[in-house]
Design a protein around this nucleic acid. Structure first.
Lengths: 102, 102
DNA sequence: CACACATATGAGTATTAACACATATGAATA
DNA sequence: TATTCATATGTGTTAATACTCATATGTGTG
């Protein structure tokens, strides 16, 4: 007897995504990338994080397919491959804001 | 010089929410609650988790305002106070599915 | 090829959080 | 009030992961 309308595997996959988004520095990198491609050096100066740390988070995001690297000369540019994710983040932010006011 | 269109505080708040959703058992509890109010005992049997563990996760969700407890006799029913969250979860699941197929 | 710059990786450390166990609280009923 | 059922909480352990330091890889240029 179960109240499940969700497959547990689906839930696990969903939670895997949320875990990626749950680290503030990593999420900050994602949010600030927006739909523009930026070299790592830009991300470093924008976030104020160490080079190593940015690289560390970019690897995680890259391996999950949430950002895509693109080499241009000696620089590596990173971009979001999908607008939809940003829109989901935006909606969630809106929800938080409404909830706070309520 | 920053590429930020997001306030960092906003990002941190967003990440706090994602952290709550990132634990698979906790997310499972949330998803399966749906918009119905259910006693803890139901959640325990539906998830197969220990009583202590369910209580532990419910506390986290409760303190974050993601679920609301309601005592009815010796039972405590839990409900989601807001449909919008479920809809966000649903959209995110859809996004994952589309992405997997692409 | 040597050197400088941009980025990535491996190892070690420290913090966090999920979970179990034991126990406490609270409600109902005898 | 004693007992039982439903749920909550405190403490300790363990596993995961964010971060740093040192170093490696890769690319362009003299």
């Amino acid at each position: 007897m179960s109240i499940n309308t969700y497959e547990y595997d689906e839930v696990k996959e969903l939670s895997r995504l949320f875990k990626l988004l749950a680290e503030p520095n990593r999420l900050n990198i994602l949010c600030n990338l927006g739909m523009e491609c930026r070299p790592v050096s830009d991300i470093i100066s924008a976030t104020g994080l160490s080079q190593t740390n940015v690289s560390f988070h970019l690897r995680t995001l890259r391996e999950a397919g949430l950002v895509r690297p693109e080499r241009r000369g000696s620089f590596v540019y990173y971009c979001l491959p999908d607008v939809k994710l940003l829109s989901l983040l935006e909606q969630t932010k809106e929800w938080i804001k409404l909830r706070r006011e309520a």
